[in-house]
Design a protein around this nucleic acid. Structure first.
Lengths: 217, 217
DNA sequence: CTGTCACCATACGCAAGCGTATTGACAGCG
DNA sequence: CGCTGTCAATACGCTTGCGTATGGTGACAG
């Protein structure tokens, strides 16, 4: 049986790597969910057949595992690293707020993974990634708040806003401001004002952030 | 072919209604996602075979449609009705905050529906329900805030918290306070303080809600 | 040139699940 | 009692998708 290389395919004549497959799987997950990751259709989208797939992977679960490892490395570690470059906790939270509202693709992917019912290995990755994101946030709030319980409350609420933002943008699209609009900038500013606690030093401008919010910056 | 009635089944000898099927489908959706709703396995769980299913429904989509209509009626209309009995907007928001943090099942179901990739009719229901919930919330904030843009910001953020709460409880389970704990009560109190704007009348106790939050009620 | 290996194509068998067709059971009514 | 309609059981055919087995191709080393 002759092997006919399709030159117009994604890999343009070179052989596919495990990483190519993993990335194709992540794309499919973001577009259509984890269940939609199917060996044969993925192979077709890569311009090969499943013979090639089964050379690289023992089964579908191995592909999904490779895809999740890639996801964790590329998108999750990198996000926290970018935020960690900010000089102070408030800036770090601000950076996270900005980033969370930026990438639709990353949102879709996170939700797809978070809500996947099988295989069960997905849950392990999602919980680990979510925990690390939460802990990063929590550490920021611990720097801003003397009271550790309060810091935890803040972190929980903010983390909920992050996750909820992903979801809400999907569920109420016509209520969501366009990304290049004044309204959007204002909303992000409002989030920043609302989600960064004013320091508990009484001589600080305590009510100023709320007043600025009400004054429409 | 003899029809053997299985007396130990869910319907306990009586015939199944369309509603029985719809509720079974919603249960399956909450447990395992929309994709897991399968005619034959659902029939088995109800103690019948798919002959019975096809008497009631032309196809699987009709079942899903019936299930979604039931969902909208039972859980969504009812939630807003309960909140609407509260005498003022702040109490209504407080009621919603309490309810959102109460039912795990409803959470799982909402997320399953929101993240279903097919059939496409699910999206219509989710968006309609989400829009109605958002609009209810927005109306509350419009009563509390003079500035309509600010009211919209508040509504968006709070709605994001509601949705994010569903997700976060699933993704960071060990960070989530137990429902009967002091910590949980405190967190709900913190949400209430944070998500209900203090009125913009300057003579009102503007900083008091933040101060109370920091003081650990 | 030959052999090896990485990568890939294809055929096959099996299972799950959908929808269709056919038949059966039973209650209610005239 | 016979008929009708509701509800349900079962067989069948088809599709999709997984994993296994087998064989092919091209690059490279010896």
């Amino acid at each position: 049986m002759a092997r006919k290389r399709n030159k117009s395919d994604l890999h343009a004549g070179r052989t596919l790597t495990i990483e190519d497959w993993a990335i194709a799987a992540l794309d499919e997950m973001a577009d259509r969910g984890v269940d939609a990751v199917a060996v044969e259709s993925l192979a077709r989208s890569l311009g090969v057949t499943k013979g090639s797939f089964y050379w690289h992977f023992a089964n579908r679960n191995e592909l999904i595992s490779a895809a999740l490892a890639e996801w964790e490395r590329r998108e999750t570690d990198a996000l926290l690293e970018r935020a960690a470059t900010e000089p102070d906790p408030a800036s770090r939270i601000r950076r996270l707020i900005g980033e969370v509202n930026a990438s639709r693709r990353a949102s879709r992917l996170y939700l797809a993974l978070s809500n996947a019912n099988k295989p069960t290995l997905v849950r392990n990755y999602v919980e680990r990634v979510a925990k690390r994101r939460f802990e990063f946030l929590h550490a920021c709030y611990l720097e801003l708040e003397h009271d550790p319980e309060s810091a935890h409350d803040w972190a929980l609420m903010t983390f909920s806003v992050f996750l909820g933002t992903l979801q809400a943008r999907h569920d109420i699209p016509d209520q969501w401001p366009a990304a290049d609009s004044r309204h959007f900038k204002r909303y992000v500013g409002f989030l920043i004002d609302s989600l960064i606690p004013v320091t508990t030093d009484i001589e600080e401008s305590y009510p100023l952030s709320r007043s600025a919010s009400a004054a429409t910056p």
